[in-house]
Design a protein around this nucleic acid. Structure first.
Lengths: 109, 109
DNA sequence: CGTGTAAGGAATTCTGACACG
DNA sequence: CGTGTAAGGAATTCTGACACG
């Protein structure tokens, strides 16, 4: 994925009505999941919510879990755990890159 | 660019107000460029226009040309020319792939 | 030709609240 | 807990048209 593609995925430009169509969730449900801290839309100047494609995917993930009877508090916990794991993975990757760089610095001087 | 990224770029989900903010063009201008066949938004069930990121980029391109004094009819011509060139390039690429495939079919049988 | 604007109507979005369970 | 709904207001979007140039 290039940097430009990431910017598409994370750019908050979709209104709640479209998100509702895209996810099959009601507008009420989407607002409620925000209240429960599961999702963070951006607000436009005039206060309307704007979502990204990443948000839409996250909401579809939430919808699946809710269908399985998972409560929002539980979903929140799981998501935090996964974010933590992701950060940890990124950290490990950075460490590895550091070692590799050090290795080449050593070899090339 | 993966297939998924393409789907983000080309998915028509942005309302005209947001497109206006993103491009700096007035809503009136955006509608006018559609009238002149420079842009093709999708219509939602209730008739509102929906744009993709690709459309937004195309509009920014149009805006630049308009600033240089290029008329919409001229812009339309240029765009058609470029599309034609692109198709031609894709065609050449397909031909080449065909030759490569034929080559390997020959070698491997 | 390209763009602004007022007009009138329809649909969207927002918040806080009551309802049900 | 999770979701529907009616309420009232504000902002959006749509079309066809007149204006200016």
């Amino acid at each position: 994925m290039t940097q430009e593609d990431v910017s598409y995925k994370d750019k908050k430009v979709i209104s709640i009505g479209i998100v509702s169509e895209l996810t099959g969730l009601s507008v009420r449900q989407i607002r409620y999941y925000e209240e429960r801290k599961l999702i963070y839309p951006q607000r436009s100047t005039r206060g309307t919510r704007k979502y990204s494609f990443a948000d839409v995917e996250r909401l579809m993930d939430i919808a699946n879990k809710r269908e399985d009877g998972v409560q929002t508090a539980e979903i929140l916990k799981d998501m935090k755990k996964k974010e933590q794991a992701l950060k940890s993975g990124q950290f490990k990757k950075k460490m590895l890159e550091g070692q590799i760089n050090a290795h080449f610095r050593y070899k090339n001087r």
